[in-house]
């Protein structure tokens, strides 16, 4: 079975990779490109640990085929910080102790960033429903929601 040649943009960089027809974007990121920040928790779109942005839309990369990345703009957790400067969400996750084991954290940060790009001033309920596609088993979500709300406030300049 020959592989497909995919030309795409990942975290702003032009990128090429080869992938099988049935290979998911998540596997392509992790296996072909070494971007292991996106995690596989379920491979069925239920846990959100593999969340990435694709053409400005939040997707579960386990539900997207690698070949669908052709010509697309992909943003992963590895592209959230700018150089040595953490994104406000990353800073507030650390400050609020919003992670325990940390396996779900990349997905939460990518998903929360997508929320704040759309809605810079979410209510707690809006944040909870937006993030309902991301599972965390350690924290009970309390500190995650606080981190997102605090990051939103900081980004609004509040």
């Amino acid at each position: 079975m020959s592989k497909h040649h995919v030309t795409t943009t990942i975290n702003g960089d032009p990128t090429e990779f080869l992938c099988g027809t049935g290979e998911t974007l998540l596997d392509a990121l992790r296996e072909q490109l070494g971007l292991t920040g996106s995690k596989e928790g379920c491979a069925s779109g239920d846990c959100g640990a593999c969340s990435v942005m694709m053409n400005g839309r939040l997707v579960c990369s386990c539900l997207v085929l690698g070949v669908e990345a052709q010509g697309a703009e992909i943003e992963t957790i590895e592209g959230v910080a700018e150089g040595e400067n953490l994104h406000p969400l990353q800073k507030h996750f650390l400050k609020e102790a919003a992670l325990q084991c940390g396996i779900c954290t990349p997905g939460f940060i990518v998903a929360a960033k997508a929320l704040l790009e759309r809605n810079p001033n979410p209510t707690e309920t809006e944040a909870r429903y937006w993030l309902a596609g991301n599972l965390c088993r350690c924290t009970g979500y309390d500190k995650i929601i606080r981190a997102v709300m605090n990051a939103a406030a900081e980004m609004r300049g509040a």
Partner: peptide, 23 residues
């Protein structure tokens, strides 16, 4: 007190190596 965990930055940037990340 409540300092930031030493492994924190690796875990919010996707750099931390979990079980399936080693090759």
């Amino acid at each position: 007190t409540r300092p930031i965990r030493p492994d924190g930055v690796d875990k919010v940037t996707g750099r931390a190596t979990f079980g399936a990340d080693f090759k």
